[in-house]
């Protein structure tokens, strides 16, 4: 999906945000791009192509996930089967939301981004491997590049550390802060 600035209203349109749980949102992933006004699937849209069914990595344009803070966007991507998104940049709130749900945002340089698009254009079945331990992305003929990842986010993803658990472990410091900032 090469287009830049894909906003979260496209990832899940607002009319599907009336749920009170997280289940089944994959059904509405990119709904207005996947489905034509007459209700039939849009065969030109990348997620409808037979060769991408079962894919776990979404290769996306820059500024992916901009706009609304809806966490329904990563929930829908995960529910559809996406485990990682590769782009040259991500919107801040989307990145935060993705990491909390185990969806890996991988930021690459423009050159690598271009090579990846070139590769999947030539071979839609081409494989890309993302290794979070070594923070490397491998594709093609032993081509491997590193990608940046905030160390805390990396640990959270690798060890399944619950960020809420970390905050709860700060109880004493939080109480001390509250005691020092009485009423404010």
């Amino acid at each position: 999906m090469a287009m830049r600035d894909v906003d979260t209203d496209q990832i899940v349109p607002a009319r599907f945000l009336k749920v009170i749980d997280k289940e089944g949102l994959g059904e509405h992933l990119f709904e207005d791009w996947r489905i034509l006004p007459d209700g039939s699937p849009n065969s030109e849209f990348v997620l409808n192509r037979p060769e991408v069914q079962g894919a776990q990595i979404l290769l996306a344009g820059s500024n992916f996930g901009c706009g609304s803070s809806r966490e329904h966007a990563p929930w829908a991507l995960m529910d559809w089967g996406v485990r990682a998104v590769i782009s040259t940049s991500f919107a801040d709130i989307f990145r935060n939301n993705a990491i909390k749900n185990g969806l890996l945002p991988v930021t690459v340089e423009a050159e690598t981004h271009g090579e990846l698009f070139g590769m999947v254009d030539r071979d839609p079945h081409a494989e890309v491997t993302i290794d979070l331990v070594s923070q490397t992305l491998s594709f093609g003929n032993e081509h491997a590049v590193g990608f940046p990842m905030d160390p805390f986010a990396r640990l959270s993803l690798l060890e399944g550390v619950d960020q809420l658990g970390y905050l709860l472990s700060m109880e004493e410091k939080i109480s001390a802060y509250e005691a020092n900032h009485d009423g404010s």
């Binding site: 966490e71 709130i93 935060n96 939301n97 909390k100 960020q163 809420l164």
Partner: peptide, 9 residues
């Protein structure tokens, strides 16, 4: 703005 996981936090 924050996401729903952060609202819970």
């Amino acid at each position: 703005g924050i996401g729903t996981s952060e609202v819970k936090h």
